[in-house]
Amino acid sequence: MDLGGINPAVLIASLMVASVPIMLAALGELVVEKAGVLNLGVEGMMIIGAVMGFAVAVNTGSPLAGFLGGAAGGAILSLVFALLTQYLLANQVATGLALTLFGLGLSSLIGQGYVGIRPPLTGALPFGPLADIPVIGRILFRHDWMVYFSLLMVAATWAVLKFTRIGLILRAVGENHDAAHALGYKVRRIRVLAICFGGAMAGLGGAYVSLIRVPQWTDGITSGAGWIALAIVVFASWKPWRVLLGAYLFGGITVLQLNLQAAGARIPVEYLSMSPYLITILVLVIMSSGRGRIAAAAPAALGKNFHASR
């Protein structure tokens, strides 16, 4: 099968890789929003993860240590957000935007000495003969471990949110923090932990950009991926499997439009470039057309600060 000179197996394989950073960041943000917190600082946490992951990987020579460093970097930055919004009760939207600006500037400062260095490379996982299966081998068995890890995280997030007590408490805090508080749950602590998880996931996504996808450090390397992650959470109506779908859609369109250009197809790329956003709007319209459905999808306490005295 050939679509205008594009091999679909190759296309699917590369969209799986292209969607990893936005998928990880969107999953983290999904958990944060499920806990009732709106953190618009995803872009800032991603880029801190990218530079920290890069710095750690270069200094230790180990990509794994790099990813851990990236996750730690994103989590630490998210603690700034947690302190401001959960303890000082600052406005979440403004704090999140500030976090992004701060992260962009700080990453540039940290990254000064790392421009033009090549990081240790992460190879594909060896699947032996599986990788040679026609079509399926190309699509499924020739990736680096982070691709499989991100898929695993989608399943894990879904299972934890749906089937475990932790997931239930998290959702309760996000739906009605006063009721959760009355039941004796530590709303603030749970939210801080969720924010931290979101930061770590965004950091991992950023580290994937600087360590595998590009792989190098330059200022502004994430270039808006964090904002796309935020859009995916809404697109997915706060459901983990739809995050997977959304990430593949957004990642796939990017890859597809470049491939179409390279193959010389005569489709104006502007239409493809705008299509994920059009689809997001469409999904929002469809979701809100059914009575009260959008209210059911978004956590009820999203973006509201909690203080025990009220």
Partner: peptide, 21 residues
Amino acid sequence: WAYTWFDPAKEADAAKALIEQ
């Protein structure tokens, strides 16, 4: 066409698409 002067991720994707072709 990448429609950017500087976007490492997008430039990498563009290069990748070309190599795949």
